[in-house]
Design a protein around this nucleic acid. Structure first.
Lengths: 199, 199
DNA sequence: CTGCCACTTGGCAGTGACTGTCAAGTGACA
DNA sequence: TGTCACTTGACAGTCACTGCCAAGTGGCAG
């Protein structure tokens, strides 16, 4: 990697970190792009070359964690049972969160304070359901059933979402590993009722 | 209802309908708020008193359908089994879509063409998971377990989402009732694998 | 080491979404 | 019919975001 790329990578990180700090200090809406650019010592025009939008600055942190999770899933061989491969996804998320608790709690506080930001998160979640569904569809257990793959993917993302949300809502007071175990145990022992007409 | 409220309600509808037509004709990004306001014969400032944002204009259509679904759920008595009550939700969505096929297909085409709009939809979806979870939590079957309620709510919204998305992707070629039946059948006969560690 | 090329940078002007404010218009009601 | 509360629309202003262009800088061949 040349000097140029190194420098750009450093700039990229620095911008996001600077933005994060400002968001924590003054809130998302209370921070302008100009302020972030000034604090990161770049022009606003340059900032936009690194991040497509103000939202992207925040979402990038979550995105990194999901990238790791997706890689963990793809690393599983086809021989591994689907349930086990899916666990790798959950496990990866759990590890990411455990390793960055303070940071992520602050991040979720920003999300909570800023209703408009939820959309960005939800959008990320949506696109990841699509990606995960595609991956699952490739697995033998899916038997080529796209509907099944989509449902499994959605269900897995649900668990992650519910767990992370519960964790964040507890202010990090509850161990994420406990919530995860409880959720999975629940799914195993108390089956989710499937909507069905009377009779 | 007085004349004033009637008039306002009419204006509200007219604005959304006008916006919808313009979006279909020129695309979401290709339509400015000023154009919508002009076509709806109101000032832009007035338009913003009816709809909080440009996005809200589009999302309102989906929101109406979800409102009906939530009411259908709340109308179920506590004696009704949860699976049956949840079916009422699915059924309501199915009916809404069946009754407005052409309109909704056009709507989803707008969503597809405009990546930035997905966020708004996803956000709506997210807030509805919360609301539905709260409702489910009140039911006896939930036994006060918030985690369970959240998982059930998420699962139900998944079904709706997957079904509607599949339907929209087929361009309305497949009957929504068929996709629904197939999805529910799938969930009943081929259980979703729960992530579990090896062993 | 030097000069050239490709790429990065940042300023500037412009668009469009959105908001606060205020004066004018209009339904509701005594 | 007059008064009051509410609705309306215009205007100015903020801010996210973009196209464009000139200046700066790393990479590389000579």
């Amino acid at each position: 990697m040349g000097l140029r790329e190194t420098k750009m990578e450093r700039t990229r990180r620095f911008i996001a970190d600077t933005a994060f700090d400002l968001f924590v200090a003054h809130g998302y809406d209370g921070t302008t792009i100009e302020q972030i650019a000034a604090a990161a010592e770049v022009g606003t025009r340059t900032l936009y070359r690194y991040y497509a939008s103000k939202e992207a600055l925040v979402v990038s942190f979550v995105e990194n964690g999901l990238n790791a999770a997706m890689e963990a899933f793809e690393a599983q061989s086809d021989e591994t049972p689907l349930s086990e491969a899916l666990y790798a996804v959950i496990d990866s998320v759990e590890q990411t969160i455990t390793a960055n608790q303070a940071r992520l709690l602050a991040l979720y506080e920003i999300f909570d304070r800023t209703t408009g930001l939820r959309a960005g998160l939800a959008d990320l979640d949506w696109s990841w359901r699509q990606k995960l569904a595609q991956q699952i569809l490739r697995r033998p257990e899916a038997e080529g059933n796209a509907l099944f793959a989509a449902l499994v993917a959605a269900n897995t993302m649900n668990v992650i979402e519910v767990v992370v949300h519960t964790w964040a809502a507890s202010g990090g007071g509850v161990k994420i590993a406990d919530i995860t175990r409880e959720s999975l145990e629940l799914l195993r022992t108390k089956p989710i009722p499937v909507p069905a007409p009377a009779g």
